[in-house]
Amino acid sequence: MLQAALFDLDGTLLKVNTSDFMKEYFKKIALAAAPVVEPGRFTRALLDSTNVMMTNRDPALTNAEVFWSDFRARLADCHEALEPRMDDFYASEFKGLARMAVASPLGRQVVQAALDRGLQIALATNPLFPRTAIYERMVWAGVADLAWELVTTYEEMHSCKPHPEYYQEIARRLGLSPEDCLMVGNDVEKDIAAAAAAGMRTYLVTDYMVNPGQEDYRKVADWYGTLDELAGWLAGADWEQVSLDGQALARVRRYLKEFDAGLAPLVLNKATGTVEEAARALGVEPGMIAKTLLFRAGDGYGLFVVAGDVRVSTKKVKELLGAKPSMATPEEVEKITGYRIGGVCPFALATEVPVYLDSSMQRFDVIYPAAGTAHSALPINFEKLKAITRGTVVEC
């Protein structure tokens, strides 16, 4: 069950052009340091030491300790005079950079929605800045006064994004397991893929999405949408269903990783209750949607994976199962398959059950069975589906 929501700051709760902001930041802090050290030398040292800090994965050293150890070595002749100037910059001049950022009107709303649902909240911004600078940016975003359980700063954290250790440390400090945490962010690699690697559920905010690798984020995130959609989702989500969906999707992803790392489920931004809805959401013809149906016959069951435009022959099911069949109840479906109706995946099942594959699906290069939830689908070819399910090919 979800118990905490982690929020990225820049690009998620705060609209900011990171490139422009960093240029102005380096210009201003170098100017503050100019009476002590030549600006070009200072900026190079600051960048190099920040890069060293970003690679830190030593749990015995905070990011600040790593940064200052390296930075002092680079500026050994002047660091004693420089350090108080940097402290003064963050305490007084950093706030002048507020003009480079714009608070999202929905940022506070989504965080408040998480609080209203009883979730702990943590600000999971990349901990590259001192506490004073991070809290100042929280003021710009209009969220500084909220009841944050944890704010990640470089004085306290022991790694940075995109290392999974960063997210695992947050979970430990909240007293939770990673799977009890939802990471909300706009960066596909640093926020979503990294948090998922740590075992967290993820929600990708698409308003100001960062995706330099052009990854298909539907294969990475558990949910995605705009800040406005996130606010509604947080306010109305069924946490039990969210938790079950997260567990089911994670189980399918683990199974696929062992079978063929090139296969990955697609997450849709809303549940699809019919073949036609799924086809529209994926932009494919209905026949390519692979329905997974559980039949009961006597004391036995059979799982049939059928093209979306094909109707299963009751006579054929009876012939295969040896008794008059009926559709399994929702309770039976969940017990036998481990998935709820609408999201039944034909593999990684809770129990051993024979699987039958409709031969007509071979006419398509790609078919789309559900991947454990009603808002997911797995693009796969027929031969791989046959291999992963160990299914028997039949004419339905």
Rank of each mutant, 00 (worst) to 15 (best):
P178G: 06
T43H: 06
G262L: 08
D8A: 12
E240F: 06
A133D: 00
R99T: 02
A281H: 13
V355R: 03
L182Q: 01
L321P: 00
A114I: 06
Y356N: 01
V267D: 08
G302Q: 02
R280N: 09
I192N: 01
L31H: 14
S69Y: 12
R363T: 07
V188N: 05
F21D: 00
R108G: 11
N269H: 10
D48K: 11
T392A: 14
F295N: 04
A250R: 14
D228I: 00
A114G: 11
A323C: 07
K315T: 14
L321E: 04
V366E: 14
I134M: 08
V306S: 15
R280F: 15
R57F: 13
H79A: 15
L97Q: 00
V16A: 11
D216G: 04
M54A: 15
Y203C: 04
A271M: 06
K316E: 10
M86N: 03
A98Y: 01
V394A: 10
R218N: 06
E38Y: 03
G236D: 11
V220P: 02
L263T: 05
L244E: 13
L320C: 06
P130G: 08
V267K: 02
G185L: 10
A124F: 14
P127Q: 01
K316D: 01
A141S: 12
L146Q: 01
I341L: 13
A279T: 10
D187F: 12
A348T: 06
M86A: 12
L321N: 01
V16C: 13
Q247W: 08
A377E: 07
L294N: 01
A144C: 07
T43V: 15
A73Q: 07
E169F: 15
L294I: 10
I29P: 00
S104W: 05
E155D: 08
D87T: 06
G372A: 12
R85A: 14
L230C: 11
T125Y: 05
D365L: 11
T152L: 09
S376L: 07
L31M: 15
L97W: 01
E229G: 09
K386W: 12
R363Y: 12
L321D: 04
L14W: 02
L174S: 07
V306H: 06
M86P: 02
A122N: 04
A387I: 08
G213I: 02
D245S: 13
W68G: 02
E156A: 15
P178F: 13
F259L: 07
T226S: 15
A374C: 06
Y90N: 00
P105H: 06
N56S: 15
N269T: 01
M53W: 12
A60K: 10
I336G: 02
A30R: 01
A34W: 07
P212I: 09
Q120R: 04
L14R: 00
F42T: 02
G287K: 05
G298H: 05
W239R: 01
L357C: 10
D180K: 05
F259M: 05
L176F: 15
M157W: 04
K315V: 13
I134S: 12
A350Y: 10
L282N: 07
R296K: 12
L75S: 08
Y135V: 09
A261R: 11
A195W: 05
R173K: 01
A32N: 05
T337H: 06
V184P: 02
V284G: 10
P325S: 05
F71H: 05
K190W: 02
G322I: 11
S177P: 00
P35F: 11
K15Q: 03
A248G: 11
G225L: 04
V366Q: 10
G372L: 04
L244T: 03
D260K: 02
H163G: 08
N211I: 13
